[in-house]
Design a protein around this nucleic acid. Structure first.
Lengths: 161, 161
DNA sequence: GCAGAATGCTTGAAGTTTCAAGTAACGAGC
DNA sequence: GCTCGTTACTTGAAACTTCAAGCATTCTGC
Protein backbone atom coordinates (compact mmCIF):
# COMPACT_ATOMS: atom_id res chain seq x y z
CA UNK A 1 0.00 0.00 0.00
CA UNK A 2 2.73 2.45 -0.96
CA UNK A 3 1.22 5.82 -1.71
CA UNK A 4 3.08 8.85 -2.97
CA UNK A 5 3.75 11.54 -0.43
CA UNK A 6 0.70 13.73 -0.43
CA UNK A 7 0.27 16.98 1.29
CA UNK A 8 -1.19 19.83 -0.67
CA UNK A 9 -1.77 21.71 2.56
CA UNK A 10 1.85 22.65 2.88
CA UNK A 11 1.44 25.28 0.23
CA UNK A 12 -0.92 27.43 2.29
CA UNK A 13 0.26 30.82 3.37
CA UNK A 14 -0.58 32.71 6.53
CA UNK A 15 -3.10 35.09 5.09
CA UNK A 16 -5.42 32.53 3.58
CA UNK A 17 -8.95 32.45 4.79
CA UNK A 18 -9.51 29.69 7.29
CA UNK A 19 -12.34 28.26 5.23
CA UNK A 20 -9.81 27.56 2.53
CA UNK A 21 -7.60 25.74 5.00
CA UNK A 22 -10.51 23.67 6.18
CA UNK A 23 -11.46 22.74 2.65
CA UNK A 24 -7.95 21.77 1.74
CA UNK A 25 -7.65 19.53 4.77
CA UNK A 26 -11.05 18.00 4.10
CA UNK A 27 -10.06 17.30 0.55
CA UNK A 28 -6.71 15.83 1.53
CA UNK A 29 -8.13 13.45 4.12
CA UNK A 30 -10.95 12.28 1.91
CA UNK A 31 -8.68 11.70 -1.03
CA UNK A 32 -6.19 9.77 1.05
CA UNK A 33 -8.90 7.47 2.36
CA UNK A 34 -10.52 7.15 -1.04
CA UNK A 35 -7.30 6.13 -2.73
CA UNK A 36 -6.41 3.65 -0.07
CA UNK A 37 -9.78 1.99 -0.37
CA UNK A 38 -9.71 2.03 -4.14
CA UNK A 39 -6.26 0.49 -4.21
CA UNK A 40 -7.14 -2.25 -1.78
CA UNK A 41 -10.30 -3.11 -3.71
CA UNK A 42 -8.33 -3.21 -6.94
CA UNK A 43 -5.51 -5.24 -5.48
CA UNK A 44 -7.62 -7.79 -3.65
CA UNK A 45 -10.69 -8.00 -5.83
CA UNK A 46 -9.89 -6.45 -9.19
CA UNK A 47 -12.73 -4.07 -8.48
CA UNK A 48 -12.92 -0.36 -7.67
CA UNK A 49 -14.67 2.03 -5.36
CA UNK A 50 -17.19 3.00 -8.02
CA UNK A 51 -18.16 -0.61 -8.58
CA UNK A 52 -18.31 -1.26 -4.89
CA UNK A 53 -20.65 1.67 -4.56
CA UNK A 54 -23.03 0.28 -7.13
CA UNK A 55 -22.98 -3.17 -5.58
CA UNK A 56 -23.51 -1.73 -2.11
CA UNK A 57 -26.68 -0.06 -3.20
CA UNK A 58 -27.98 -3.13 -4.93
CA UNK A 59 -27.22 -5.22 -1.88
CA UNK A 60 -29.72 -3.12 0.05
CA UNK A 61 -32.41 -3.52 -2.57
CA UNK A 62 -33.57 -7.12 -2.81
CA UNK A 63 -35.98 -6.20 -5.60
CA UNK A 64 -33.34 -4.38 -7.58
CA UNK A 65 -33.12 -0.74 -8.58
CA UNK A 66 -33.71 1.25 -11.69
CA UNK A 67 -30.74 2.82 -13.38
CA UNK A 68 -31.95 6.24 -12.35
CA UNK A 69 -32.16 5.26 -8.72
CA UNK A 70 -28.65 3.91 -8.91
CA UNK A 71 -27.15 7.06 -10.33
CA UNK A 72 -29.04 9.19 -7.83
CA UNK A 73 -27.47 7.20 -5.02
CA UNK A 74 -23.92 7.10 -6.29
CA UNK A 75 -22.06 10.34 -6.77
CA UNK A 76 -21.81 9.80 -10.49
CA UNK A 77 -23.63 10.53 -13.72
CA UNK A 78 -26.27 8.60 -15.60
CA UNK A 79 -24.04 7.58 -18.44
CA UNK A 80 -21.41 6.33 -16.10
CA UNK A 81 -23.83 4.08 -14.28
CA UNK A 82 -24.79 2.55 -17.60
CA UNK A 83 -21.12 1.84 -18.18
CA UNK A 84 -20.47 0.45 -14.71
CA UNK A 85 -23.53 -1.77 -14.76
CA UNK A 86 -22.61 -3.08 -18.20
CA UNK A 87 -19.19 -4.05 -16.88
CA UNK A 88 -20.65 -5.65 -13.76
CA UNK A 89 -23.12 -7.57 -15.89
CA UNK A 90 -20.35 -8.84 -18.13
CA UNK A 91 -18.65 -10.17 -15.01
CA UNK A 92 -21.81 -11.85 -13.85
CA UNK A 93 -22.33 -9.84 -10.70
CA UNK A 94 -25.48 -8.18 -11.86
CA UNK A 95 -28.40 -8.73 -14.20
CA UNK A 96 -30.50 -6.22 -16.12
CA UNK A 97 -34.05 -6.49 -17.36
CA UNK A 98 -36.76 -4.18 -18.53
CA UNK A 99 -39.19 -2.95 -15.90
CA UNK A 100 -42.59 -4.59 -16.37
CA UNK A 101 -44.53 -1.41 -15.70
CA UNK A 102 -42.41 1.01 -17.70
CA UNK A 103 -40.60 -0.24 -20.72
CA UNK A 104 -38.26 2.75 -20.75
CA UNK A 105 -36.83 1.72 -17.41
CA UNK A 106 -34.24 -0.95 -16.65
CA UNK A 107 -34.09 -2.82 -13.39
CA UNK A 108 -30.76 -4.00 -12.12
CA UNK A 109 -30.33 -6.61 -9.45
CA UNK A 110 -27.52 -8.62 -7.91
CA UNK A 111 -26.99 -12.18 -8.96
CA UNK A 112 -26.23 -14.77 -6.27
CA UNK A 113 -22.59 -14.64 -7.27
CA UNK A 114 -22.64 -10.87 -7.10
CA UNK A 115 -24.08 -10.97 -3.63
CA UNK A 116 -21.38 -13.31 -2.41
CA UNK A 117 -18.69 -11.24 -4.07
CA UNK A 118 -20.01 -8.09 -2.44
CA UNK A 119 -20.20 -9.67 1.01
CA UNK A 120 -16.51 -10.54 0.86
CA UNK A 121 -15.53 -7.09 -0.25
CA UNK A 122 -17.76 -5.39 2.27
CA UNK A 123 -16.13 -7.14 5.18
CA UNK A 124 -12.68 -6.01 4.19
CA UNK A 125 -13.92 -2.56 3.23
CA UNK A 126 -15.45 -1.98 6.62
CA UNK A 127 -12.39 -3.23 8.47
CA UNK A 128 -10.22 -0.91 6.45
CA UNK A 129 -12.35 2.13 7.15
CA UNK A 130 -12.45 1.41 10.83
CA UNK A 131 -8.69 1.21 10.78
CA UNK A 132 -8.26 4.40 8.79
CA UNK A 133 -10.56 6.44 11.01
CA UNK A 134 -9.18 4.97 14.16
CA UNK A 135 -7.21 8.12 14.88
CA UNK A 136 -10.36 9.67 16.33
CA UNK A 137 -12.05 8.59 19.52
CA UNK A 138 -15.69 7.52 19.38
CA UNK A 139 -16.73 10.89 20.76
CA UNK A 140 -14.67 12.76 18.21
CA UNK A 141 -16.15 10.68 15.44
CA UNK A 142 -19.62 11.59 16.61
CA UNK A 143 -18.73 15.27 16.70
CA UNK A 144 -17.32 15.13 13.24
CA UNK A 145 -20.30 13.23 11.93
CA UNK A 146 -22.59 15.86 13.31
CA UNK A 147 -20.56 18.78 11.95
CA UNK A 148 -20.50 17.17 8.54
CA UNK A 149 -24.25 16.79 8.80
CA UNK A 150 -24.52 20.54 9.10
CA UNK A 151 -22.22 21.05 6.14
CA UNK A 152 -24.20 18.64 4.06
CA UNK A 153 -27.47 20.32 4.81
CA UNK A 154 -26.02 23.70 3.93
CA UNK A 155 -24.64 22.34 0.66
CA UNK A 156 -28.02 21.00 -0.25
CA UNK A 157 -29.56 24.41 0.32
CA UNK A 158 -26.83 26.13 -1.69
CA UNK A 159 -27.46 23.87 -4.61
CA UNK A 160 -31.14 24.59 -4.93
CA UNK A 161 -30.66 28.30 -4.32
CA UNK B 1 -25.07 24.91 -11.25
CA UNK B 2 -27.60 22.12 -11.48
CA UNK B 3 -26.24 19.00 -9.90
CA UNK B 4 -27.92 15.64 -9.84
CA UNK B 5 -29.48 14.64 -6.56
CA UNK B 6 -26.75 13.05 -4.55
CA UNK B 7 -27.07 11.19 -1.36
CA UNK B 8 -25.35 7.87 -1.05
CA UNK B 9 -25.84 7.99 2.67
CA UNK B 10 -29.45 7.04 2.39
CA UNK B 11 -28.51 3.46 1.75
CA UNK B 12 -27.04 2.87 5.18
CA UNK B 13 -28.71 0.43 7.46
CA UNK B 14 -28.98 0.54 11.21
CA UNK B 15 -26.35 -2.02 12.01
CA UNK B 16 -23.51 -0.42 10.13
CA UNK B 17 -20.48 0.56 12.08
CA UNK B 18 -20.47 4.25 12.81
CA UNK B 19 -17.04 4.66 11.22
CA UNK B 20 -18.67 3.63 7.97
CA UNK B 21 -21.33 6.28 8.40
CA UNK B 22 -18.72 8.91 9.11
CA UNK B 23 -16.73 7.97 6.04
CA UNK B 24 -19.76 8.02 3.82
CA UNK B 25 -20.71 11.45 5.01
CA UNK B 26 -17.16 12.71 4.66
CA UNK B 27 -17.07 11.39 1.15
CA UNK B 28 -20.41 12.89 0.22
CA UNK B 29 -19.59 16.35 1.51
CA UNK B 30 -16.19 16.45 -0.10
CA UNK B 31 -17.47 15.24 -3.41
CA UNK B 32 -20.28 17.77 -3.43
CA UNK B 33 -17.87 20.63 -2.78
CA UNK B 34 -15.35 19.27 -5.23
CA UNK B 35 -17.87 19.03 -8.03
CA UNK B 36 -19.25 22.45 -7.42
CA UNK B 37 -15.80 23.99 -7.57
CA UNK B 38 -14.82 22.01 -10.61
CA UNK B 39 -17.98 23.01 -12.44
CA UNK B 40 -17.57 26.68 -11.63
CA UNK B 41 -13.93 26.66 -12.73
CA UNK B 42 -14.90 24.93 -15.96
CA UNK B 43 -17.82 27.22 -16.63
CA UNK B 44 -16.09 30.50 -15.85
CA UNK B 45 -12.51 29.80 -16.85
CA UNK B 46 -12.49 26.68 -19.01
CA UNK B 47 -10.20 25.20 -16.38
CA UNK B 48 -10.58 22.48 -13.77
CA UNK B 49 -9.77 21.75 -10.15
CA UNK B 50 -6.70 19.73 -11.10
CA UNK B 51 -5.28 22.60 -13.13
CA UNK B 52 -6.10 25.07 -10.44
CA UNK B 53 -4.21 22.91 -8.00
CA UNK B 54 -1.09 22.92 -10.13
CA UNK B 55 -1.27 26.67 -10.66
CA UNK B 56 -1.85 27.27 -6.95
CA UNK B 57 1.33 25.49 -6.08
CA UNK B 58 3.34 27.31 -8.69
CA UNK B 59 1.94 30.61 -7.51
CA UNK B 60 3.60 29.99 -4.17
CA UNK B 61 6.94 29.15 -5.72
CA UNK B 62 8.47 32.18 -7.44
CA UNK B 63 11.45 30.11 -8.55
CA UNK B 64 9.32 27.34 -9.96
CA UNK B 65 9.03 23.71 -8.96
CA UNK B 66 10.27 20.43 -10.26
CA UNK B 67 7.74 18.01 -11.67
CA UNK B 68 8.28 15.71 -8.74
CA UNK B 69 7.60 18.45 -6.25
CA UNK B 70 4.42 19.27 -8.11
CA UNK B 71 3.08 15.76 -8.05
CA UNK B 72 3.99 15.37 -4.39
CA UNK B 73 1.91 18.43 -3.60
CA UNK B 74 -1.15 17.63 -5.67
CA UNK B 75 -3.10 14.51 -4.94
CA UNK B 76 -2.34 13.04 -8.31
CA UNK B 77 0.20 10.82 -10.00
CA UNK B 78 3.43 11.63 -11.76
CA UNK B 79 2.14 10.88 -15.21
CA UNK B 80 -0.87 13.04 -14.74
CA UNK B 81 1.21 16.02 -13.72
CA UNK B 82 3.17 15.65 -16.94
CA UNK B 83 -0.11 15.72 -18.80
CA UNK B 84 -1.53 18.69 -16.90
CA UNK B 85 1.63 20.73 -17.21
CA UNK B 86 1.84 20.02 -20.92
CA UNK B 87 -1.71 21.32 -21.34
CA UNK B 88 -1.00 24.39 -19.23
CA UNK B 89 2.13 25.08 -21.24
CA UNK B 90 0.23 24.84 -24.50
CA UNK B 91 -2.14 27.46 -23.13
CA UNK B 92 0.73 29.71 -22.16
CA UNK B 93 0.14 29.66 -18.42
CA UNK B 94 3.33 27.84 -17.60
CA UNK B 95 6.83 27.29 -18.96
CA UNK B 96 9.13 24.29 -18.62
CA UNK B 97 12.88 24.11 -18.77
CA UNK B 98 15.56 21.67 -17.76
CA UNK B 99 17.06 22.16 -14.31
CA UNK B 100 20.59 23.55 -14.58
CA UNK B 101 22.00 21.33 -11.85
CA UNK B 102 20.30 18.08 -12.81
CA UNK B 103 19.44 17.44 -16.39
CA UNK B 104 16.95 14.73 -15.54
CA UNK B 105 14.77 17.26 -13.78
CA UNK B 106 12.34 19.75 -15.27
CA UNK B 107 11.50 23.05 -13.63
CA UNK B 108 8.05 24.48 -14.16
CA UNK B 109 7.14 28.07 -13.45
CA UNK B 110 4.23 30.39 -14.05
CA UNK B 111 4.33 32.88 -16.88
CA UNK B 112 3.12 36.41 -16.25
CA UNK B 113 -0.11 35.53 -18.04
CA UNK B 114 -0.45 32.40 -15.94
CA UNK B 115 -0.03 34.38 -12.77
CA UNK B 116 -2.76 36.84 -13.77
CA UNK B 117 -5.05 34.01 -14.79
CA UNK B 118 -4.54 32.27 -11.50
CA UNK B 119 -5.16 35.42 -9.48
CA UNK B 120 -8.56 35.84 -11.09
CA UNK B 121 -9.52 32.23 -10.50
CA UNK B 122 -8.25 32.26 -6.94
CA UNK B 123 -10.50 35.14 -5.98
CA UNK B 124 -13.61 33.39 -7.18
CA UNK B 125 -12.45 30.05 -5.83
CA UNK B 126 -12.02 31.42 -2.33
CA UNK B 127 -15.35 33.22 -2.38
CA UNK B 128 -17.05 30.01 -3.43
CA UNK B 129 -15.47 27.95 -0.69
CA UNK B 130 -16.35 30.48 1.96
CA UNK B 131 -19.92 30.32 0.72
CA UNK B 132 -20.02 26.53 0.63
CA UNK B 133 -18.63 26.13 4.14
CA UNK B 134 -20.73 28.90 5.53
CA UNK B 135 -23.07 26.40 7.17
CA UNK B 136 -20.60 26.08 10.04
CA UNK B 137 -19.79 28.79 12.54
CA UNK B 138 -16.19 29.92 12.90
CA UNK B 139 -15.86 27.84 16.06
CA UNK B 140 -17.26 24.77 14.37
CA UNK B 141 -14.90 25.21 11.46
CA UNK B 142 -12.00 25.34 13.88
CA UNK B 143 -13.17 22.18 15.60
CA UNK B 144 -13.52 20.39 12.33
CA UNK B 145 -10.15 21.57 11.15
CA UNK B 146 -8.56 20.23 14.27
CA UNK B 147 -10.35 16.88 14.08
CA UNK B 148 -9.31 16.47 10.48
CA UNK B 149 -5.77 17.24 11.56
CA UNK B 150 -5.91 14.21 13.83
CA UNK B 151 -7.30 12.08 11.04
CA UNK B 152 -4.62 13.21 8.67
CA UNK B 153 -1.85 12.45 11.08
CA UNK B 154 -3.25 8.99 11.69
CA UNK B 155 -3.54 8.36 7.97
CA UNK B 156 0.06 9.33 7.50
CA UNK B 157 1.10 6.83 10.15
CA UNK B 158 -1.07 4.12 8.64
CA UNK B 159 0.54 4.58 5.30
CA UNK B 160 4.06 4.13 6.47
CA UNK B 161 3.12 1.23 8.75
C1' DG C 1 -56.80 9.41 -28.89
C1' DC C 2 -53.35 12.53 -30.63
C1' DA C 3 -49.56 16.06 -30.71
C1' DG C 4 -46.02 17.63 -28.06
C1' DA C 5 -43.42 17.69 -23.86
C1' DA C 6 -41.12 15.07 -20.50
C1' DT C 7 -38.75 10.93 -18.85
C1' DG C 8 -35.41 6.89 -18.69
C1' DC C 9 -31.83 5.21 -20.48
C1' DT C 10 -28.04 4.39 -23.98
C1' DT C 11 -24.47 5.68 -27.03
C1' DG C 12 -20.30 7.72 -28.90
C1' DA C 13 -16.86 11.09 -28.59
C1' DA C 14 -13.83 13.63 -25.89
C1' DG C 15 -11.61 14.43 -21.71
C1' DT C 16 -9.09 12.87 -17.73
C1' DT C 17 -6.59 9.73 -14.75
C1' DT C 18 -3.93 5.85 -13.76
C1' DC C 19 -0.61 2.26 -14.50
C1' DA C 20 3.29 0.00 -16.29
C1' DA C 21 7.03 0.29 -19.10
C1' DG C 22 10.59 3.04 -21.07
C1' DT C 23 14.43 6.59 -21.48
C1' DA C 24 17.80 9.48 -19.79
C1' DA C 25 20.74 11.17 -16.23
C1' DC C 26 22.92 10.89 -11.74
C1' DG C 27 25.84 8.75 -8.00
C1' DA C 28 28.31 5.28 -5.21
C1' DG C 29 31.69 1.82 -5.14
C1' DC C 30 35.08 -0.52 -7.20
C1' DG D 1 36.15 6.17 -15.34
C1' DC D 2 32.94 1.97 -15.52
C1' DT D 3 29.07 -0.45 -13.84
C1' DC D 4 25.07 -1.03 -11.32
C1' DG D 5 21.35 0.66 -8.92
C1' DT D 6 18.49 4.75 -8.31
C1' DT D 7 16.02 8.80 -9.54
C1' DA D 8 13.24 12.07 -12.68
C1' DC D 9 10.37 12.27 -15.89
C1' DT D 10 7.69 10.82 -20.18
C1' DT D 11 4.95 7.88 -22.91
C1' DG D 12 1.27 4.85 -24.55
C1' DA D 13 -2.42 1.91 -23.42
C1' DA D 14 -6.27 1.10 -20.81
C1' DA D 15 -9.59 2.39 -17.45
C1' DC D 16 -12.88 5.43 -16.21
C1' DT D 17 -15.81 9.63 -16.37
C1' DT D 18 -18.37 13.14 -18.35
C1' DC D 19 -21.06 15.42 -21.79
C1' DA D 20 -24.19 16.01 -25.44
C1' DA D 21 -27.00 13.89 -28.57
C1' DG D 22 -30.23 10.32 -29.56
C1' DC D 23 -34.03 6.84 -29.17
C1' DA D 24 -37.96 4.82 -27.26
C1' DT D 25 -41.62 5.24 -24.14
C1' DT D 26 -44.84 7.51 -21.23
C1' DC D 27 -47.57 11.38 -19.80
C1' DT D 28 -50.48 15.75 -20.41
C1' DG D 29 -53.75 18.71 -22.18
C1' DC D 30 -56.58 19.27 -25.54
Amino acid sequence: MTLPLLDPETRLQGDDHEALRLWLRLFTCTTMVERTIDQVLKRDFGSSLARFDVLAQLDRAPDGLRMGELSAGTLTTNGNVTWLVAALEAEGHVRRRTAPDDRRATIVRLTAAGRRHFATMARQHEALIIELLDGLSATERRTMHSLLGTVKQHLRLERTA
